[in-house]
Design a protein around this nucleic acid. Structure first.
Length: 888
RNA sequence: GCCCAGAUGGCGGAAUUGGUAGACGCGCUGGUUUCAGGUACCAGUGUUGCAAGACGUGGAGGUUCGAGUCCUCUUCUGGGCACCA
């Protein structure tokens, strides 16, 4: 009997698959297709356990669907542009291109031993000119289609590195790399017109029934649709050209509670007033500080009273002051608002700081709602001072109506579906209604009386796609002194990145390249300059799934291929991409369809989405002499009953599991696991312990258990292979039933992405089989089935067992086993008997016995008689095949 | 602050439509074999009790013959969003 030696069998079977071209995807009109895709990796140079889990999941699906007879596409590529390559070049010298391609080679070398059923002939990297050249062609098409445009935008500018920073690269207002104070600069940037699709991207979420509800919700919140009123104030004392001030509000029902108007520091009116040095100083003050969420959150509200006034649209004698305020965003709504401090927390904070009035519009109904008298309106003094937003006036307007809280610094903003008492409604008639009703009434009042219109706005902004970086796809545009901004001629594509660049000077090397920038205008032929911005790397990943359908095409896609393979039937990746990557991809697929690069059916590119959990590990910590934490690698730790120590006996603190990260040193290198246990063990373990959408904790005991189990299966297979041909056992029927059941349950488990449950079934079936005493052919049939059922998770050992048991061809190409339905039904069932809801006995009865018969047997049962102790039976419930409940 | 998800043994987790709570794995306990040890194999393992039994799915109520599952309230944990007017 041979030992289980994965180091021997795994490379052997990988070669066999390669030789058979087992995983090369082919268009086959005779078979249904299945496209399974895992989010492609960034080539950091090392694979980690998260990759192993992600790609194993996809592989299980791919191998399972392939066995089911589907023509499967399961490709792999590299998300290869981006900053780390440039950072590496800056830190260690070398070229981003060399660094990237060498990392790709390393990672491919680490992934291949995993035995994934990937069609490697379709591999590409987004930094291949063949890929990004096609991306440039689409960019030009999208320019023509009006889906791309240029506009000025405020960005985080690092004055030392001379580059634009993403919000998350700004830490405490400083550049994460340079440490220099970040400035807010206005630069002309390229934008994708994703906002054209706001409504559609939102609506279409409903159709994505195979996406996690959570992801759809996050996208819906991100798109952020709102309905509100837009109207213009007449101004008093404003500069010429600003006779009107447009504002947008989602709470027009609070218009009668307005006490000021406020504009953004970036508002045209603020700019017009900047000739006043005090205004200029204030605006500059607002612009200081980063645009990151953190900065905005902690910033105090500040304002500047312009002296300009606006007339209230419903009462021209009522004038409100116009302030410039730092909390008003220019790029949402109109960049100007009216403030209603009583019902908006931000406005209240602002009003309290600058002594502005707080005008109550509605009140809560209070706890007592019975027998209230109709609301007559607020008292004349209901314009409260800042110290008493609400004054308790219970009793003044009848006994039951005016119970409300005294609030001094919290604005009263109940959910819009809650009924409240309006004292200052828009039409002047006090009433009780919900916020939603009042808002609808306010919009129609404004439209009827002609001072405003109802509008729908979205939070979703256009996608800023420019990066002042070298290692990205060059934007294929030329700046001509006479023709202006002109797309490059498609014949000149790809516009390749120049290789002769250095990173010893900060800034974008393209910007200072001596010759690359110079070019001829594709329109007039005059001397012109190339655009030096490159594309956001999210562009690269927004269409790679389409490129995989025809990776070598000389156009971005080939429609027959895209038509055959699209859409991705199962997409698998991390929840961290729930919003940006998936939303951009959904937009890009629409943009590609509009420009003729995808069939219309592909506008939702991912039919089903699965977001897998992380691989976590405990953290081992000691403390150094200065009290700073020191972390230790798992392999340096000795676990004992009491806890954990280092080799020298030092006691180590064990911190509960967290995502594997280099800084905490709680990493397990997949290569080490493969070296000691083999790829199948690693694959088995990451699929076994936890539901795939949840985090899985890597433990060495769990990995060993996985290895031991595979060894047991190996031993079992050897034992069955050695059985004499003519052995006859008594358990044939039982084993046939157990085999059928295993097929049924494993199939259901894989279908429903419950891989952990499928594996639990396989453990059980293995135990049954190892204890079975059946005839040789039945045993062989059972172990062959076991090999097939295990094949998606642990393909190498499955192949080895398959040949050992006389299977024909490759196990991975054998059709998925089918369970005989007759064997799935048991002749007799065991029914538990409850008395008054407590389980007291059980009986075994034929499956299809009539309920009245079952009742008789149950009542005659000696345990039942004992527990009833002579009490009369009031009722008996028989759930066929399930349970009997006797009520005494 | 708003939105979402979750809470089950010592641990990871199972449990169609409400129908035997704790599958499977880890760990632990006892035993057998080999034996220097690990390995391998067998049995046991929610709590409590000598036992019959009682109790038990974060907490408190409720619906039901029957609740981990449904309803109300609540606590905690995780995640997302957040000056978006």
């Amino acid at each position: 009997m041979s030992r289980y030696e994965p180091a021997q069998i795994e490379p052997q079977w990988q070669k066999a698959w390669e030789k058979a071209q087992a995983f090369e995807a082919r268009r086959d009109p005779a078979r249904p297709k299945y496209y399974v895709l895992e989010m492609f990796p960034y080539p950091s140079g090392r694979i980690h356990m998260g990759h192993v889990r992600n790609y194993t999941m996809g592989d299980v699906v791919a191998r399972y669907k392939s066995a089911q007879g589907f023509s499967v596409l399961h490709p792999m590529g590299w998300d290869a542009f981006g900053m780390p390559a440039e950072n590496a070049a800056m830190e260690r010298g070398g070229h981003p291109k060399d660094w990237t391609y060498s990392n790709i080679a390393d990672m491919r070398g680490q992934m291949k031993p995993l035995g994934l059923s990937i069609d490697w002939t379709r591999e590409f990297a987004t930094c291949d000119p063949e890929y990004y050249g096609q991306q440039q062609a689409m960019f030009i098409d999208m320019m023509d289609a009006g889906l791309v445009y240029r506009k000025a935008a405020v960005v985080n500018w690092d004055p030392v590195d001379m580059t634009v920073l993403a919000n998350e690269q700004v830490i405490d207002g400083k550049g994460w790399r340079s440490g220099a104070a970040v400035e807010r600069r206005e630069l002309t940037q390229w934008f994708f017109k994703i906002s054209d699709y706001s409504e559609e991207l939102l609506e279409a979420l409903d159709g994505l029934t195979h996406w996690p509800e959570k992801v759809r919700l996050m996208q819906a919140n991100w798109i952020g649709k709102s309905r509100g009123l837009q109207f213009a104030f007449d101004t008093v004392g404003a500069p010429q050209g600003f006779e009107k001030l447009e504002v947008y509000t989602t709470r027009p029902d609070t218009l009668m509670g307005a006490s000021f108007a406020a504009i953004s520091a970036d508002h045209p009116l603020a700019k017009a007033l900047e000739s006043d040095p005090k205004v200029a100083a204030f605006v500059a003050e607002c612009r200081r500080g980063g645009t990151s969420a953190e900065d905005i959150e902690t910033a105090e509200k500040i304002g500047y009273d312009t002296g300009i006034r606006v007339r209230h649209p419903l009462d021209p004698t009522w004038e409100l002051p116009v302030w410039i305020a730092n909390f008003i965003l220019m790029d949402y709504g109109t960049g100007a608002i009216f403030g209603c401090p009583a019902h908006d927390q931000r406005d209240l904070d602002f009003a309290r700081k600058y002594n502005l009035p707080v005008n109550l519009v509605f009140r809560n109904l209070g706890a007592r709602t019975e027998g209230y008298t109709p609301f007559e309106g607020f008292p004349p003094d209901s314009v409260f001072s800042r110290d008493s937003v609400f004054t308790d006036v219970e009793g003044e307007y009848g006994p039951a109506f005016y119970t409300y809280q005294k609030i001094t610094s919290v604005a009263y903003a109940p959910p819009k579906f809650e009924r409240v008492a309006y004292g200052r409604p828009i039409d002047g008639k006090p009433t009780v209604q919900t916020g939603d009703e009042a808002i609808a009434a306010a919009i129609s009042h404004a439209e009827t009386n002609g001072y405003g219109i109802g509008v729908t706005k979205f939070r979703l902004r256009d996608w800023g796609g420019s990066r002042q970086r070298y290692w990205g796809c060059p934007i294929p545009v030329v700046h001509c002194p006479t023709c202006g901004v002109v797309p490059e001629a498609k014949a000149n594509l790809p516009i390749k990145l120049p290789d002769d660049v250095t990173f010893d000077v900060p800034g974008n090397p393209l910007d200072r390249h001596p010759t690359w920038r110079n070019c001829a205008c594709p329109k007039c032929g005059a001397e012109a300059r190339r655009e030096t911005d490159t594309m956001d790397t999210f562009v690269d990943s927004s269409w790679y799934y389409a490129r995989f359908t025809s990776p070598r095409a000389t156009t971005p896609t080939s429609l027959p291929d895209a038509d055959y393979w699209m859409n991705v039937d199962q997409y698998i990746g991390g929840i961290e991409h729930a919003i940006l990557h998936l939303l951009y991809s959904r937009f890009f697929a629409r943009a590609m369809a509009k420009t003729g690069h995808l069939p219309a059916k592909a506008i939702e590119p991912f039919k089903a989405l699965f977001t897998q959990g992380m691989v976590t590990h405990e953290i081992y910590k000691t403390t150094d002499a200065n009290g700073r934490p020191v972390y230790h690698l798992p392999e340096d730790i000795i676990r004992t009953d009491a806890g954990a120590t280092l080799a020298d006996g030092t006691v180590v603190e064990v911190i509960p599991s967290a995502k594997m990260s280099k800084s905490k040193k709680n990493v397990v290198d997949p290569m080490n696991i493969i070296a000691s246990f083999g790829a199948d063990t690693a694959r088995w373990f990451v699929m076994s312990d936890s539901p795939p959408e949840r985090d899985v904790e890597w433990t060495s005991s769990g990995a060993e258990a996985a290895f031991k189990h595979l060894s047991r299966v190996w031993g079992l297979s050897n034992r069955i292979a050695d059985m004499p041909e003519g052995h006859v056992g008594e358990g044939d029927d039982d084993l046939r039933r157990a085999t059928a059941k295993a097929i049924d349950e494993v199939t259901k488990g894989i279908e429903s992405f419950a891989f952990n449950k499928a594996i639990a079934v396989l453990y059980g079936f293995t135990n049954t089989l190892s204890r079975a005493n059946a005839s040789t052919p039945v045993m062989k049939d059972a172990i062959r089935t076991l090999a097939q059922l295990m094949q998606p998770m642990v393909p190498h050992i499955a192949e080895a067992i398959w040949v050992m048991q006389g299977g024909t061809g490759l196990c991975c190409q054998a059709p998925w086993p089918k369970a005989d339905p007759a064997l799935l039904i048991d002749d007799t069932v065991i029914l538990p008997i409850q008395i008054n809801g407590k389980r007291r006995a059980e009986i075994s009865v034929p499956k299809d016995m009539a309920a009245t018969e079952v009742e008789k047997i149950a009542l005659a049962n000696e345990d039942v008689v004992r527990f009833l102790a002579g009490q009369p039976v009031r009722k008996i419930i028989v759930v066929p095949g399930r349970i009997i409940n006797v009520v005494a």
